[in-house]
Amino acid sequence: MAAVRAARRQRLRGFAFVLPALLWTAAFFLLPFAFMVAMSLWRRVGGRILESWTLENYADFFGRPHFLEGLANSLEITLTVTVISVLFAYPLAWIIAEKVPERWQRAALMLAVLPFWTSYVVRSYAWLLVLAHDGVVNRALLAVGLVEAPLVLASTRTATVIGFVHFFVMLLTLTIYANLRQLSPNYARAAADLGAGPVRIFLHVILPLTLPGVMVGAFLTFVLAIGDYVTPQILGGNNELVLPQIIMLQIGRRADLPSASAMAIVLMAVVTLVYFACARWLRLERA
């Protein structure tokens, strides 16, 4: 009896440590989410919010080509960015892990991800400078004679993709490098003993073994890119809007919180679907 009571007292005491954080998360994460769900089921009519339950905001979203296009733009841009970033980051991570002498690896990695820490508003602005009509890239292309007139780079989808790829190459280099380093060198040695050449070792041993880690990084890229408003707004401008831009338009210009909420929930649903689609690979990593 006394032992049971003591155990319960222990549990209560432990719980008291966790409670503040739990309460904080409940009050400022779960509760706002509940508010958002409720809001998405209300309507904004004539400048006021009508508190009667309806699915019309969702019907609106899926009924209007304008909104669906935003979702399609988001998916296209995000997938492009994810694929390109992985293709750029993997070789870099591999070279740092394999070719750079051990004692310089950490410095090389630090150097590769340092601009990761620039504020993202500032980073997008910096790309705008680079890609501007009279910017560095156009000046260089003109000077070399590759183009005859400055390219239109700012306020295009290309600019958005470049801005994103810049950020995610750094992120993915970090995660893929960590993955490559975890790999025991014995796998490659065993394959070499069995007569495999370097290309074959890479394709049949290293790459499959690091794929789960790459998938985790790619998923992270997908989630962060599809939810970002700043990069497409600064670099992509006002054509080919992505979903976060459309959500911000509902909040700002139209003060239509119900439809913004419905769209935010659609966005979350998309991310969740992608998560379940990738879950097979994402889970592999823990095994």
């Binding site: 222990q10 549990r11 005491r13 432990g14 719980f15 440590f17 966790v18 954080a21 739990l22 998360t25 409940a26 400022f28 994460f29 779960l30 706002p32 989410f33 508010f35 958002m36 989630v223 962060l224 599809i226 939810g227 970002d228 408003y229 976060p244 959500i247 911000m248 909040i251 919180l257 913004a260 909420s261 935010a264 966005l267 979350m268 991310v271």
Partner: peptide, 29 residues
């Protein structure tokens, strides 16, 4: 401490990591 539903508590505490800032901000707004 050995707490009941500790997995659930950990999941709840780390859940905000998987939601985009825009959605967290909108909910709070």
């Amino acid at each position: 401490y050995r707490l009941p539903a500790s997995g659930l508590q950990r999941a709840l505490l780390t859940a905000p990591l998987s939601v985009s800032y825009l959605i967290i901000g909108l909910g709070l707004l």
